[in-house]
Design a protein around this nucleic acid. Structure first.
Lengths: 235, 235
DNA sequence: TGTACATCAGTGAACGCGCGTTCACTGATGTAC
DNA sequence: TGTACATCAGTGAACGCGCGTTCACTGATGTAC
């Protein structure tokens, strides 16, 4: 039994298409009212079907939410991947800035989906394991860049503060499990860069830079261009 | 007519107390179900009053939310202020780490209130102007530290990437309006530090470090201790 | 190629629930003389 | 100090609404022989 096959019969094709249409309608819903108010009935209404029909496709509201979350992670991940396609491997700064811009552009284009995955968790909703894989797609793009810089001997991490034992242990363990290509210190700085990227996007999107910055794009670009150099990921 | 006086009559005192009780109950509600599901009726129920009675104190659900948001900003701001009380002015690193820890501790103790002010905006809710003042209370604590370091000639910001004209203009304008004591470059790095602090807290709280970091506290402390030095806010 | 049966998508009604807000009211507290 | 009136907190019923989910059903699509 293959895990995933292309739809065969007309019924299966129709089923897959309708599931996609439901998700699209739910995404539009999401953009209007936010995740907490996402309503199965409203989704059904938009598709001109009766609310109970949606249960043929998603066993509950939470499952629909999960599907949207997975799609959102895949979507932002894909945007990041597309942004670096065709760039020279040793153009670390160019690749990095391209990913950052892609993340920001995706977030601005899909603010509620961004909020769904990087904002406050939806109350009462518990994300299942299935979201972990898709969530790491965008981070993988960023890790690749740092990995390449590291392999080329371009990283220059200096310990401005001694790395405590407990932190070192965590980093070593994470490295073993996920990222053998990154030394602890580089991994730590990568996490900082990652935090800074999503912190910057969240601050802009959630309105915390209001009254401070006008030209968000210029400010973001400058912050993101500075980040890897300040952190010693490459010079 | 004084803008704010201590309550005089018994009625006024009772009124102030009940308004506070309503907010407390709403805060407990918030902690359970999150801001989008906060319900006036449930708040009234908890206080043993009829739902319409709440309208004597808050003209609508949104006004109650606004009150909670303002309280949350004041509360996290106060926590930051208390954290640095009694520290030597020139102990920049100690003051900075103390504020960071206070922010993190407050967020962990009040996760939904944190989400309310630094998470995804509540759909359909538009924050009024009244929240701006309280919101800047915690940032003021952080700015003070950097200001002192700057005044003492301890900042050492180097341009790893040239500061673009448009960014410079924004920073100059923000400086004029809010922070005359900080040169553009220092203001820019302060914004990065601020972003990193809240990015780190959000990542931890919203579960994005799951499977990477175990000892959140140690990691956070190390990140925050490194930040000002990496950014050149002081050495 | 044709028939008999199984599968499944979608219907429509219903269950039980909670929500924000309005409104006319009652009774207690406060104020002016 | 006592009375008459005004203010206002809290009540209880109601309005109109939307929600997630279940269930027995119908009719169309797919499958086995």
């Amino acid at each position: 039994m293959p895990t995933t096959t292309a739809p065969r019969t007309a019924r299966e094709r129709a089923r897959a298409e309708l599931a996609a249409e439901i998700k699209d309608a739910a995404r539009r819903q999401l953009a209007e009212v936010g995740p907490a108010a996402l309503s199965l009935r409203a989704v059904a209404r938009e598709l001109g079907m009766v609310s109970s029909a949606v249960y043929r496709y998603f066993p509950s509201r939470d499952d629909l939410l999960t599907a949207l979350i997975i799609d959102a992670y895949e979507s932002i991940g894909e945007a990041g991947e597309r942004a670096v396609v065709g760039r020279r491997g040793d153009d670390y700064a160019g690749r990095w800035l391209a990913v950052c811009r892609a993340v920001r552009a995706w977030a601005l284009a899909n603010p509620h989906e961004y909020g769904l995955i990087y904002g406050s968790p939806v109350p009462g909703y518990r994300a299942p394991q299935d979201t972990i894989g898709p969530a790491s797609r965008i981070t993988a793009v960023m890790v690749d860049i740092v990995s390449d810089a590291e392999a080329a001997g371009r990283t220059a991490v200096e310990d401005v503060v001694p790395l405590p034992r407990r932190v070192r242990a965590d980093l070593a363990s994470a490295r073993r499990r996920h990222l053998p290509s990154l030394p602890e210190r580089v991994l730590e700085r990568s996490l900082m860069a990652w935090t800074l990227l999503f912190g910057a996007v969240s601050f802009e999107l959630f309105g915390h830079l209001h009254d401070v910055i006008e030209d968000y794009e210029a400010f973001f670009d400058h912050e993101m261009a500075s980040t890897p150099k300040l952190l010693g990921l490459w010079s």
